[in-house]
């Protein structure tokens, strides 16, 4: 029946038929692709590109959050930041006393904090992912859920949990340390210990992300590759080196990107646990940025300069890894 009807008749039938409204909408793909893309592009442009351009503009001026734009200062803010701002970078060295020098500032704190926490997380994450992978089918789902939990906790809550546990008077960790005969450290009041404390909290919160990603990588390595290595008589370390590691390299890179990205913008974990102190001993760039602009004098020009530096560093590092491992293609 229908087969006897020619094309024009079919098209005619379309016009008359009671098709749904959607199917009668004739929009070409050329139009549709922009209808689909433009809202997101416009919104993201308004909340990322436009502010970014303006941030660059602001960083070239004396600019106060409340009183607004001041004189054009060129790269003055950047100069101040890099060479005249001890909170950002401070290095004092007296050649006559080579063992006593001062190296601090948010850049240094950032390097220590990010370097230390992310490397511990990656190593620990790989180890625990492999441990999880070795478990039997009965235990794996349970342990996996447990290993993921810290990552699901709201960062602000994580910080508060740790404050509860390391509190000077009621902290349960202090109690346990004393119980085994160790005197509790000054968790947040010595500069070095405060940095270690925030690193510990960061490791607790974010190692699970590395575990989860690396574990997905381990699952994707075909069993036959292990079997081939075993048949070839490879010892365990060689299997790790030549089968496991190549199989999860890509995942490690992804974990690294997401950890670095978060680490450069960390705020609540540090601010709640140590209040960036003692003094400014745990103040990283993002916190300095916040305090420069939104607390105190409101130096938005300097803050914008710091923001640009932070964006360049973060996006630069992350994108270089992303492009190198060919992720997101």
């Amino acid at each position: 029946m229908g087969a006897m009807i020619g094309l024009s008749a079919i098209t005619e039938r379309y016009r008359r038929s009671e098709q749904s409204l959607l199917n009668r909408l004739e929009i070409s793909d050329r139009t549709l692709r922009w209808l689909f893309m433009l809202p997101s592009i416009v919104v993201l442009a308004f909340i990322s590109i436009v502010p970014l351009v303006r941030a660059v503009w602001m960083s070239l001026h004396d600019w106060n959050l409340t009183s607004g734009k001041g004189a054009f200062v060129g790269f003055g803010n950047y100069e101040t930041l890099l060479f005249g701002n001890p909170e950002f970078f401070r290095f004092e060295f007296d050649p006559s006393q080579p063992f006593e020098f001062v190296l601090s500032g948010s850049v240094v704190h950032q390097a220590v904090y990010t370097g230390l926490s992310v490397s511990i997380e990656v190593v620990l994450g790989i180890a625990l992912a492999m441990y999880l992978f070795s478990l039997s089918e009965r235990w794996q789902p349970i342990v996996r859920t447990i290993f993921v939990l810290p990552m699901l906790v709201t960062p602000i809550a994580t910080a508060l949990m740790w404050r509860l546990m390391i509190d000077g008077s009621i902290g349960v960790i202090n109690y346990m340390l004393q119980f085994v005969g160790i005197s509790p450290p000054a968790w947040t009041s010595s500069p070095v210990m405060a940095m270690l404390t925030v690193v510990i909290v960061d490791v607790w919160q974010w190692t699970p992300l590395v575990i989860l990603i690396v574990f997905a990588g381990l699952l994707s390595i075909p069993e036959s590759r292990y079997e081939a290595a075993r048949v070839d008589g490879a010892p365990r370390w060689a299997i790790f080196r030549h089968v496991t590691l190549p199989g999860i390299k890509y995942m490690i890179a992804i974990a690294l990107v997401f950890r670095l990205m978060r680490s450069f913008r960390e705020f609540p974990l540090i601010e709640i646990v140590t209040s960036h102190g003692p003094g400014t001993a745990t103040q990283i760039m993002n916190i300095q940025l916040y305090r420069t602009v939104f607390v105190g004098t409101g130096d938005a020009g300097l803050g914008a300069a710091l923001g640009i530096v932070l964006i360049v560093v973060t996006v630069g590092i992350c994108m270089s890894i992303v492009r190198r491992v060919g992720m997101m293609q």
Partner: peptide, 16 residues
């Protein structure tokens, strides 16, 4: 062409 009609610009759904 399908059935003698040029379909270059006809949508897949209208080609029967």
């Amino acid at each position: 062409s399908i059935g003698g009609e040029v379909v270059n610009n006809t949508e897949p759904r209208d080609r029967d």
